[in-house]
Design a binder for these strands. Structure first.
Lengths: 186, 186
DNA sequence: CGTGGCATGTAAACGGTTACATGATTTA
DNA sequence: TAAATCATGTAACCGTTTACATGCCACG
């Protein structure tokens, strides 16, 4: 458990808001960083245990009568997080199955690649709408939060990349469809 | 070994050009799809063994006096590859450490985020130059190759995304640096 | 009371990288 | 002949997902 970034994700969220359970953390991840990061329960719960025994988070007991646990970040945890934040970011191993299939496109009929590009366009369009919706609501929903500025920056890059992918897909589809028509003039 | 895409990468390359060894395949990957896909020897050699025993590739013996092995794709292998190509592509689990650190940017001094954005700008600029260089040389270097069209499409999306990231970084840096100056008017 | 969702957790499997071992070939 | 690099291969480890087990709690 040396290069995993799960600890930092959990610490990062607890640094924003205290008293969260493993279940809570998962939900926050799904509704915030999910577009560029994910964590499963199989990672979250063991990591919480380890963070606690390392003194980076503390256990505040269960909320109400429920079993739901509550964890908060400690000063040591904040320090640990900050240290990591200042380190250079790493480019994670590139894995883009769309590009892979496109690269080998000549091995299949042209409609195969075209269908993939359409699918890419649709997915990007959907994602773009989602991101723009978040961009509209976030400022009011998070007014006063010190992180808001950075969340909007994050969002901004997401929008820029998604839009670029969308525009590429639209332009490319037009090209390819024209080509198809020219080859079969009827 | 069910959801691994290593077999398809190897088959895809062998479909373009026959008689390649594990070592060759690695080199081809590094010099073609590396920007969006990677494979290590630890994956390549065992996968070759399995592909062979499954009849998807065939062993053509060693080249010359060297130990270097030669593998070629079989008809069954081509069919297997085509079947996969026609399947919908999957979005691989998102992992972008830059965005993650940016998202938690409020937990560190502003220069930390700024430094990361500068680094992103530099990496994207470098990548963009590389991709544009490839774009210039590829058409002549691969004239007549049936895959060329798709390789250029792949490259085109790479360029579009890299440029979008670069432009975002430049614009954002300007904003942030102005902000820094305004706060410390001297 | 029963059912469905809440919440925590774990074991096993998986894909992948890393580090290492080994021998062959080329080059100085 | 020595050093470097080519080439193949494997074992150990790592991070992560998946599937499953378990009990709690709210609600009909």
């Amino acid at each position: 458990m040396d290069r995993s970034r799960t600890p930092y994700v959990l610490l990062g969220i607890l640094a924003i808001e205290d008293r969260k359970s493993g279940y809570d953390l998962r939900k926050v991840i799904e509704s915030s960083v999910a577009h560029f990061w994910g964590e499963s329960y199989g990672q979250i719960y063991p990591t919480l245990k380890r963070l606690r025994s390392d003194g980076l988070i503390r256990h505040d007991g269960a909320r109400g009568k429920q079993r739901r646990q509550q964890y908060s970040i400690t000063d040591a945890g904040r320090q640990y997080l900050r240290k990591w934040l200042a380190l250079p970011f790493q480019n994670d191993p590139p894995r883009n199955e769309f590009l892979l299939k496109l690269f080998f496109g000549a091995e299949a009929p042209p409609q195969v690649a075209i269908a993939h590009i359409r699918e890419l366009r649709d997915r990007n369009l959907k994602a773009l709408k989602q991101l723009e919706q978040i961009g509209k609501l976030a400022p009011e929903a998070n007014a006063g939060q010190p992180g808001l500025k950075y969340w909007m920056l994050t969002l901004g890059l997401g929008v820029a990349l998604t839009r670029a992918g969308l525009e590429w897909a639209e332009a490319t589809l037009e090209d390819l469809e024209n080509e198809q028509v020219e080859r079969r003039p009827e």
